[in-house]
């Protein structure tokens, strides 16, 4: 018995295309060399402010996670080591080595790590793809889900003087797409 993908939307699939395209349009004009210092700051800031996250990862803190926002022009590699956190952007067409990978629309990934969208539901509807070390992915998902408050706020807090505008921009996109999500 085959199941066809249902008409009911999951995640941001049914949001108007122009909304879903906002992150790509904004981030595609940012050179990676400009983005990288921000990513460094995000990694350090999250490591400092969310120490329990790393305890939950257990043996997976030295794994290389590929985070692939499929609608953005780059991919990210994360090594969630609390002492030396690593978050780096690579061009989408380059070769990147990793142990475990998670792929999905940027807004879905963002909303999932902020605990506003259920990862299993995204997986069931094929809006989230998992490759490589599944145990490492499950551990990261559960560790992020235990973070109190908004981890996205923590991330935008790493933007320093730009954290206000960055947070505002993200909240606008999330609010506009949230009306199109069932959960």
């Amino acid at each position: 018995m085959a199941h066809s993908r249902p008409a009911i939307v999951s995640g941001a699939r049914n949001a108007p295309p122009f909304l879903l395209d906002i992150p790509r349009r904004l981030l595609s004009i940012v050179p990676l060399v400009v983005l990288q210092p921000v990513l460094d700051r995000i990694a350090t800031h999250v490591a400092r402010s969310r120490p329990r996250l790393f305890a939950r990862l257990g043996p997976h803190t030295d794994k290389r996670y590929l985070i692939d926002p499929v609608d953005l022009p780059f991919v990210l590699v994360l090594i969630p080591n609390s002492a030396q956190p690593f978050l780096k952007a690579f061009p989408r067409d380059g070769k990147v080595e990793y142990d475990a990978g998670i792929a999905g629309r940027f807004i879905n990934l963002l909303t999932m790590i902020d605990a506003s969208l259920d990862g299993d539901a995204l997986f069931f509807t094929r809006d989230l793809r998992v490759v490589g070390d599944v145990e490492a992915v499950v551990a990261l998902r559960n560790a992020l889900d235990d973070c109190d408050g908004s981890i996205v706020d923590t991330i935008t807090g790493a933007f320093g003087p730009l954290s206000g505008p960055a947070g505002l921009a993200l909240s606008v996109v999330r609010r506009m797409t949230a009306g199109h999500r069932p959960v």
């Binding site: 249902p6 299993d120 539901a121 069931f124 069932p182 959960v183």
Partner: peptide
């Protein structure tokens, strides 16, 4: 409330 979006296999 409609919980279908959280179900396995959408069923």
């Amino acid at each position: 409330a409609d919980l279908i979006a959280l179900t396995e296999g959408y069923r």
